[in-house]
Amino acid sequence: MDELLNVALVQTSLAWEDPKANREELDTKLEALTSDIDLIVLPEMFTTGFTMSPRNIEKEEGQRTLAWMQQKAKEKDVAMVGSIVFFENDAYTNRLLFVEPDGKTSIYDKRHTFTLAGEDKVYQAGKERLIVNYKGFKICPMICYDLRFPVWARNTEDYDVLIYVANWPEPRITAWDTLLKARAIENMTYCIGVNRIGSDEVGHKYPGHSVVFDGLGKELEFSVKEEIVTTSLSKKHIHEVRNKLKFLNDRDRFTLE
């Protein structure tokens, strides 16, 4: 029997530096989801927008959003993933939270902080990659600028799904489209990109382009409007692709420092 993972991609506009307003807006939007969804994917910094002024956010907001995600995951019997501004141990991180229905939470701190915007000056970079086993799928979630660094996404664990959550602006959207497809093909995996939409308070415009590619780089879903896009991922597809085309067996062997 083919294992399936039903995923909802939440392509949404974001209120600037207002976690409460964003949580309330998402409460409303998520009410429309059907009961057969397994995983909800939210954008990068989905409670604030891509702010380089984390001190404008109450330090407790990270924990409040984590509690909100845990409650929402329990209510809807789904997993949720997205990144937020998080304060811990006297430092701010751009932290991705993967929250399962039973409350289990896995974390990934963005490794490649976006130096062009000065993210490296205000957010502490992460060092560890995350692989989550959920409903028979191995999932590797990453954040925005990580997309430009293929070695970090290299599929050495035979993961099934690669996810990027983002605030990726309009002027560089061709790179987003191209690199997501490349990551799917080179890693022989489903690749999901969830970008925000709308404009922020510092003048950046975001065109969406949330997308799903299969393990051969075929586009399954694509959106340029404010909406929730749903898709169904097949474990059988991944097995068939890798058994027929054993390209991953020929990958170079090396380790990252």
Rank of each mutant, 00 (worst) to 15 (best):
Y92H: 11
Y92Q: 03
Y92P: 01
Y92S: 01
T93R: 14
R95G: 01
L96R: 03
V99Y: 06
D102R: 09
D102G: 12
G103I: 08
K104F: 08
S106D: 13
S106P: 00
Y108S: 04
Y108C: 02
D109S: 13
K110Q: 12
R111C: 00
T113I: 01
T113W: 00
F114K: 01
F114T: 00
T115C: 02
L116V: 09
K121Q: 09
Q124F: 12
A125C: 06
A125R: 11
G126F: 03
G126W: 03
K127M: 07
E128W: 11
E128N: 15
I131D: 03
V132N: 04
V132E: 04
V132D: 01
N133S: 13
C140E: 06
I143D: 05
Y145K: 05
L147K: 04
F149Q: 01
F149C: 00
P150M: 07
V151R: 09
V151T: 11
R154C: 03
R154T: 04
N155Y: 09
T156F: 11
D160N: 12
V161H: 08
L162M: 12
Y164G: 01
V165F: 01
A166I: 02
N167V: 07
W168A: 10
P169N: 14
E170K: 15
E170R: 15
P171H: 14
P171D: 14
R172N: 06
W176N: 05
D177F: 09
L180Q: 09
R183K: 12
E186V: 13
T189K: 11
Y190D: 03
C191K: 08
I192S: 07
I192M: 09
V194G: 10
V194H: 13
R196E: 11
I197W: 10
I197N: 10
S199H: 12
E201L: 05
H204S: 08
Y206S: 06
P207M: 13
P207R: 13
G208N: 10
S210A: 12
V211P: 02
V211S: 08
V212F: 10
F213M: 03
F213S: 02
